[in-house]
Design a protein around this nucleic acid. Structure first.
Lengths: 223, 223
DNA sequence: TCAAAAGTGTTAGATTTACACCCATGA
DNA sequence: TCATGGGTGTAAATCTAACACTTTTGA
């Protein structure tokens, strides 16, 4: 042990789980079940184990919460004010994750007492969690323009309208339909199928899919 | 104590100190004086104290190193592989900092056995420090285009050629002089003075200064 | 007088934005 | 038949990129 004279602290990961549902971007939050802060709205999180990397911890927490592995995650930042946690010194690494709500077993959500809340309506959260959410949103907005992460929030087959509504929900502003579709058509890895979705219109809309293989060959992405 | 059953770990901050000198972007690195990794090139860092925020720790480490306070710092990311430090489990938060090399007492640099190394020539560093440097550079490149951070790397009076050379050194590519100056002239808070610098040409070049007050009123920045 | 850096505008091309109508279908 | 969401192209405006010569002055 080389460094034994130095202070050790608890390290946690807190996850901002984004989902897209009913045309809105939502995150999962719940009321804290434990002191300190019992009853306050909060992100879901967990402590980092002694033999667990930060990434592994984030994935474990997400698995615990959703039953899903290999979710897309992105580190948001690390929060280390001395008094950020009223219980004890805890440094927290925030991650955001993207899930397709349809893949998510709602019973599990209820078990954890979590709610999907529209990002614009997120209430006051425990400690510095609101800051984490704002930072996550900001990073996601930057990312969604230049990286194919939208598809993590959508079913594997989706319509262009869905893709656009998602983009608008993330960016918080409407965009022109024709211009949006022009950009999508420049990306060959967003492939039109012959399948038609009739759930939202009588005419029906073509379903598209993201071809990761094609993207990896020519990873040009711009929305 | 609410969380006593969980593992505590050492948390350190490692700083990527950027400086601009002789037309090149450089960082400060030194050979580790302690085991583990004694003799390897490494970033400068320090452990986070029990009653110290991450930001405070970063500023303290920088003060220790440079004697300067209130340097511009930016969190880069947090590195938490289990085996990233061969001595013991250490989670490290990387920050980059910008300093004006002229403000920096070179004796202090020597005391710490640090060297300025051109970013393109950075050798293999201890542990994951090369990754930290790459991430810091990437973030800085994004930032320098849209935020007035260049001025942290330059003397308070600078010529447009200096500003351009700095920009080129950060971006790693040359830019057109006339186009660059056009963009600078769109930003009224980059003020021309009547002073002339004759150190780099016979003709002399006007010195400019960054007017923070004017910037805060109309914080439009785009290079 | 000449070498070396400072300073300065214009034009073509590319990109971005604005905008409106027809189509297919099920109720 | 009509209401609803799906689908499509063009033109103006803006932004970006390319480009070359004159000025000043100390050595």
């Amino acid at each position: 042990m080389y460094y034994q004279e130095y202070a050790k602290v608890l390290v946690s990961v807190d996850v901002i789980v984004f989902g897209f549902d009913a045309g809105k971007l939502k995150i999962l939050i719940g009321k804290r079940q434990l002191d300190p802060g019992r009853g306050e709205w909060s992100l879901y999180g967990g402590f980092v184990g002694a033999d667990e990397s930060l990434n592994d911890a984030a994935h474990r927490v997400l698995f615990d919460l959703t039953g899903l592995r290999n979710l897309y995650i992105q580190q948001v930042g690390t929060f280390g004010s001395v008094d950020r946690d009223p219980g004890e010194r805890v440094i927290s690494v925030a991650y955001y994750a993207l899930i397709n709500v349809k893949d998510y077993d709602d019973a599990l959500r209820q078990q954890h007492n979590l709610e999907w809340v529209i990002v614009e309506n997120v209430p006051k959260l425990y400690s510095d969690h609101n800051e984490m959410v704002q930072m996550a949103l900001k990073l996601m907005r930057t990312k969604i323009k230049t990286a194919p992460i939208s598809f993590r929030l959508l079913p594997s087959l989706f319509t262009l309208t869905q893709l656009q509504k998602l983009y608008e929900a993330v960016m918080g502003e409407e965009v022109d339909k024709r211009n949006f579709r022009k950009r999508v058509k420049d990306m060959d890895f967003i492939e039109k199928t012959e399948l038609i979705d009739k759930t939202t219109s009588k005419r029906g809309a073509y379903l598209y899919r993201f071809n990761k293989r094609a993207y990896d060959e020519d990873p040009y992405f711009k929305l």
